[in-house]
């Protein structure tokens, strides 16, 4: 399991958070319980199984619901 932090463009509405959370969870391999969207800092953080998926796949899923991902870091 690895932890990824994606930096997003400024979030303006709390319903954005629901969309982003749902998008991240829809990717198989992402630990659903660990998905956390930070409204104040426009970040999303989650743990994932690096054998099944990677941060880029999740980033793409978030971008398809309309939120550009500005940066990715995996630890």
């Amino acid at each position: 399991m690895k932890t990824a932090t994606l930096k997003l463009d400024t979030l303006t509405c709390p319903s954005c958070m629901l969309k982003i959370e749902a998008a991240a969870r829809s990717v198989p391999g992402v630990d659903d319980d660990t998905v956390h969207v930070s409204f104040a800092n426009s970040k999303v953080k989650f743990r994932f199984d690096d054998a099944r998926t990677d941060a880029q796949t999740v980033a793409k899923a978030i971008e398809t619901v309309g939120y550009p991902v500005l940066g990715t870091s995996v630890a």
């Binding site: 954005c16 398809t64 619901v65």
Partner: peptide, 15 residues
């Protein structure tokens, strides 16, 4: 577009 994106992940947003 935002509304459709939201519905796709089953979120009923303000859009």
């Amino acid at each position: 577009i935002q509304a459709v994106q939201a519905l796709r992940v089953r979120v009923l947003s303000i859009d």
